[in-house]
């Protein structure tokens, strides 16, 4: 069953002098439980698309429907935002409270969830991201990865159907990225629909489907294998493939019979077979 449906979606940023295209003619359907990675270089419209998905921005043309509700209908907006949780780039700029559990409780409090249920949800959400031990603490001493996990917990506490991570790993060190990604993959394995927006291709290897964006439009969709093997597409959209993937492209350009790979382990296997 599809949870998100985008129909011919267009949006542009308007000021008095000029109009900048955010996204143009986007058609996309996301199934429940899918793990989608939205790839694209800076300024390609990924974040604009994300904000359109939960009604933070409203489409100029076309429609976004979340579980059957249109974002353009004012009366649905909070229902949609509680269904589509969004984690942003800078963990510091999305926390409202000085105490971690208070921050996690903020979403359900806003929704008017009953007290005993909030307590349960806070416990569950912090457990899900592995931060229960920090419950009563302040976020200031935490690492970037830990802060971002708190931000994920804060969104989870609203019990969303879809989790969008809008470049949430961009400001993190490699260890922090690893922490956040493993939490996200675990949530997906438990049935959460995930849309991960990033410009790191190596975060896309486990995706069910990759959507590549360029200049506000969807350039390609496909499995990681399909996308990673398309060297022309990667160059055109200015993506940075993982090293192993680049090596395979070079080898195949030199005439070696190699197939595209996603991880270093696969690359080793393919290279060993060459002998």
């Amino acid at each position: 069953m599809s949870i998100l449906e985008l129909n011919d979606l267009s949006f542009s940023y308007k000021t008095d002098e000029e109009e900048t295209i955010g996204v143009k003619n986007i058609n996309l359907t996301v199934e429940k439980g899918e793990f989608i990675v939205l790839l694209g270089h800076n300024g390609c419209g990924k974040s604009t698309l994300a904000k359109l998905l939960n009604g933070l921005l409203l489409p100029d043309e076309g429609t976004v429907s979340v579980d059957g509700f249109l974002t353009s209908d004012e009366s649905n907006i909070y229902k949609i935002r509680s269904k589509v949780g969004m984690v942003f780039q800078n963990p510091d700029n999305q926390m409202v409270a000085s105490i971690i559990e208070d921050d996690v409780a903020f979403g359900p409090e806003n929704l008017g969830v009953e007290r005993s249920e909030i307590v349960k949800r806070v416990e569950w959400a912090l457990e899900a991201v592995g931060m229960s031990a920090y419950r009563k603490g302040t976020p200031f001493k935490l690492s970037g990865g830990q802060k971002q996990r708190i931000a994920i917990a804060s969104v989870l506490a609203m019990k969303p159907d879809v989790l969008i991570l809008d470049e949430s790993t961009a400001m993190l060190d490699p260890q922090g990225r690893e922490e956040v990604l493993s939490v996200v993959k675990k949530l997906n394995a438990d049935g959460m629909t995930v849309i991960l927006i990033t410009h790191y291709m190596d975060e896309a290897t486990d995706a069910d489907r990759i959507v590549v964006m360029n200049a506000g439009q969807i350039e390609a969709t496909g499995t990681p294998k399909e996308i990673f093997s398309d060297k022309e597409l990667i160059d055109r959209c200015r993506l940075h493939p993982p090293v192993c993937c680049g090596v395979m492209h070079k080898l195949s350009a030199l005439g070696f019979p190699v197939e595209p790979v996603l991880t270093d382990e696969e690359a080793v296997e393919v290279l060993c077979r060459l002998r």
Binding site: K51, N54, F88
Partner: peptide, 17 residues
Amino acid sequence: FALDARCYNATEARTKM
């Protein structure tokens, strides 16, 4: 944006943990 995304002002009947 983050406040909006977390349904700030969704209801008058806000609860407290």
